[in-house]
Amino acid sequence: MAVLRTLLYLFVYPGLLFLFAYSTFCEWFDRKVFARLQNRMGPTHTGSFGLLQPIADFIKLLAKEDVVPAAADKGLFRVLPAFGLAVVSAAGLLLPVWNFDLAVPSFTSFQGDLIVLLYLLSLPTLIIFLAAWSSTNYFSSIGGARVLTMLFGYEVPLFLAVLSPAILAGSWRLAEIAAFYQAKPLLILPNLLAFAIAVVAVQAKLERCPFDIPHAETEIVGGTFTEFSGKKLALFRLMFDIEMVVSSGLLAAVFLGGFPGGALVGFAHLVVKTLFVIFLLSLIRALTSRIRIDQVVTLAWKYLAPLAVLQLLIIILLKGLLS
């Protein structure tokens, strides 16, 4: 029975199957909201309301010609998309959806899984950098350099922002943090600043406008993905979609009280909360214009990081007051 549960967990929910289906749904949601914010229609025709459009795009890309540049590092170039997908899917397993027991740590929920999840979510950035560098293209190289520069900008504010609710809850385990805020929902409020910072940092992590600098179409063509086509590009796109689901799930688990109530009710919580975060991400995308790479670093270190530290101070004081 335990084996079946684990297999179910790995491959169905929240494993690969769910992540694939839900990430395409999230991409559809993001595209639809983005379009409606701009007074457009968005995907309309594939499936009802265009729900199947991301899947159609995925299949179409799979069928396209797959070109590997002559000068590219072929091994890296081939393996990286699959590796990136594997990393974010593994990160998805750490979300405290079901199949965990608060009292007993398991392989998907243990003390410190927050850190592991953050680490696994940092890896795609490095993978993208390697992919860009191994594809030997000027535009890709510039994109790769931008990816790394941006990483140094947003990663610290994100970690600091996620730290403060964890400190207040006194745990490094996602399930315990979520349970803490479920028990005391009012304590979500002092973390709002950290939530805002985290949303901005996740936006940067997902390389979406205003942080779509590494693949800024009008500047450096495809940027990091200039040389990627066909299956590899499809996998990278899927990787970004899953990363969006996982990081919004992380924010929901840490800031919004997680997904209580077992498999079914928890699923409803997951859908509502991640879609809320994705809505915020879409809103930021629609609201802003792409900024320059130097402005990203300035924004991160001048505003986001000090604010995150301030939030941390507030939380520590609050924790002192409460205990």
């Binding site: 701009q38 007074n39 800024a216 214009s289």
Partner: peptide
């Protein structure tokens, strides 16, 4: 100009 700067909403609205 909005599109070149990645400000797609501006682009969509002005063109609308």
């Amino acid at each position: 100009a909005g599109h070149e700067a990645g400000f797609d909403s501006f682009f969509m609205y002005t063109w609308r």
